[in-house]
Design a protein around this nucleic acid. Structure first.
Length: 581
DNA sequence: GCCGTTTTCGGCCCGACTGTTTTCAGTCG
């Protein structure tokens, strides 16, 4: 697939064009083109071969020609020309908070700055502060921006950002005059990582609320503080900083503001374009018709209703197909639908709590079933169980099940898929388990000499009649480890054909499958299982991250194993074994 | 550069905050 590469090149062209002072709408066309190409599931090369490129939204005559040129020459002529004229280190400078295309172009032209090192030099020797349009204050901000970029460059995982957002929300609620606070932005959309936290606040006096907010103990730096808006950074445990923005609006605008600050940006642009076509105006204060008459604004659903649309769950505001009006959002899976967790560890391997403790904690969450899935023998670091220990563990799980009323405890295991594609336990032992999660932990890199590829290993595991589910299929760790190179189409097809479940691992460090892959699996008819992979009772509460990932994939309740009734669940597990044997 | 159920030309989302060029351009979300 050339899609990702073409998207990257379009984005690069947009960056460079922006620096040349090109018409911003032309710049935007390249950005829009990059987004469309990136979101496309079809292969761009195939579309090009059939001359259908212009059927893609945002791809017109010009961009289509670029794609054809790229396929023939492996490059884009417009980009080559731009790169001859502009130094390669320049676009990076636009990532510095406070520096945009105009200022970067200016320091390049006036001070021959070609990259980050040059910029640091002209800051240090005082030449930047002398430049027209720059002053001591803005140079100080730019210097801070560089430090921010270098230390906090990466986006923050949802599992870090959301609890922090909730803490700040609760603190804001205790500020005098504040009536309501909602988390907006990518945290509300349930994106796996967030760039900053957005909080929306209903109050009459914005200035006092913003002042109180910027004085919170968590605040490290104040970036802006005005009558309706405040912007700060807060420190994270690893010494990085996360930006938090607060907006204060009156009651009658709260819904419009929540809609606006939830995004995504592309979703909002689509909605605003619809408004413009109707000669309306949509901004964060409300939806106004041509006579400035207020059509909506107090609540979010009212905004969508004005466009004859249902309220759209934030997780799906991705500018994909959610505004088509063809969606049944009622059937979307929700956290309340989840009634079981089928992947958790105990003290038998590397967990912190006993079978009984995990069961009691799951019962408190209202679950009807759990599966205990400790590690198999090859996961030595995780205290994986030998065959003998596993046999005893199954007995212990069954005994705990008899003792514990009100919840069914399945005897399961998380069985390693070995480098040669075989499983870490013999079939006779797997047959004794009620539920088997098969996962790759060892040798996640490319298959070495004589070894199978990760795809072949996964396909081999799917073929085993006793494997119920593939655990964390791509093995990625957000911001820390790249996913394995998998042929997801082949895996999804094999899983669908054999009634093998694929996991959405709900641990915020993993979120694996990610939502795009989950969407692909659902389209192929695969049943997904959302599990926490809990190593303690507290980890069971990470289920919410898995559920938002499923919702981002537009998963219905019927697509999720964990939302089934006890009978339907067991039936589904048995189906795999019947079909395979 | 893209796009069209008012348009194939003339539009293209909208407002807040900041620093400095002291009346507004640049940046950001």
């Amino acid at each position: 697939m050339i899609n990702a590469e073409v998207a990257r090149l379009f984005e690069r062209i947009a960056d460079l064009l922006e620096l040349t002072g090109e018409n911003r709408f032309r710049v935007n066309s390249y950005r829009q083109g990059a987004r469309s190409v990136d979101a496309l599931t079809e292969d761009l090369a195939a579309l090009a071969a059939e001359n259908r490129l212009q059927s893609v939204k945002g791809i017109g005559k010009g961009l289509a020609e670029h794609v054809h040129y790229f396929i023939e020459h492996g490059t884009i002529d417009v980009l080559d020309d731009l790169q001859k004229r502009l130094p390669p280190g320049l676009p990076k400078l636009m990532e510095i908070p406070g520096l945009g295309p105009k200022k970067v172009a200016k320091v390049h032209e006036a001070l021959s700055v070609n990259g980050l090192d040059d910029l640091k030099k002209v800051i240090a020797d005082g030449r930047l502060a002398q430049l027209e349009g720059f002053g001591e204050t803005s140079v100080k901000k730019i210097a801070e921006g560089i430090a921010f970029l270098e230390t906090s460059g990466k986006r923050t995982p949802l599992g870090i950002a959301l609890p922090l957002a909730e803490e700040l929300r609760d603190r804001l609620l205790s500020v005098e005059g504040v009536r309501r606070v909602e988390i907006a932005g990518s945290a509300r959309r349930g994106e796996e990582t967030v760039g900053d936290v957005d909080l929306l606040c209903e109050a009459d006096n914005g200035e006092t609320v913003v002042k109180a907010f910027t004085a919170f103990p968590q605040v490290r730096r104040v970036l802006a503080s005005g009558a309706t808006k405040g912007s700060v950074t807060v420190g994270l445990s690893d010494d990085r900083e996360l930006q938090v923005d607060v907006r204060v609006v009156p009651k009658e605008s709260f819904g419009a503001a929540l809609q606006y600050f939830t995004g995504s940006k592309a979703h909002n642009v689509e909605l605003r374009e619809r408004a413009v076509k109707k000669k309306w105006k949509l901004n964060e204060y409300g939806l106004l018709d041509v006579d400035e008459k207020r059509l909506a604004g107090e609540d979010e659903a009212g905004i969508y209703r004005a466009f004859k649309l249902p309220w759209i769950p934030p997780e799906l505001r991705q500018a994909r197909d959610e505004l088509s009006g063809e969606f049944d959002f009622e059937s979307l899976v929700a956290l309340e639908d989840i009634r079981c967790d089928l992947h958790m560890h105990t003290t038998a391997s590397d967990g912190r709590h006993s079978i009984e403790e995990m069961a009691e904690a799951a019962k408190a969450l209202g679950y009807h079933t759990i599966a205990i899935c400790d590690h198999s023998k090859s996961s030595v670091i995780a205290n994986g169980l030998t065959v003998e220990r596993m046999k005893a563990h199954i007995k212990a799980i069954r005994k705990a099940g008899e003792k514990t009323a009100g919840i069914r405890i399945l005897a399961g295991c998380e069985c390693d898929i070995l480098p040669d594609g075989s499983l870490d336990y013999p079939d006779e032992l797997l047959a004794e388990c009620d539920w088997v999660v098969a996962s790759i932990h060892i040798a996640q890199g490319k298959g070495g000499s004589g070894k199978l590829s990760p795809t072949q290993r996964t396909l081999a595991a799917i073929e085993n009649p006793f494997v119920s589910c593939i655990g964390h299929p791509t093995g990625r760790l957000i911001n820390r480890r790249e996913p394995m190179d998998l042929d997801m189409a082949a895996i999804v097809k094999a899983a669908a054909d054999s009634h093998t479940m694929l996991e959405i691992n709900a641990a915020w460090q993993r979120l694996d499958l990610k939502s795009d892959h989950a969407r692909q699996a659902i389209a192929a008819g695969v049943m997904l299982s959302v599990n926490t992979d809990a190593h303690s009772t507290g980890d069971l509460r990470q289920m919410r991250y898995g559920v938002v990932t499923a919702r981002r994939a537009a998963a219905r309740k019927s697509d999720i194993l964990n939302a089934l009734t006890p009978a339907a669940l067991l039936n589904r597990i048995r189906t795999k074994r019947k079909v395979s044997s």
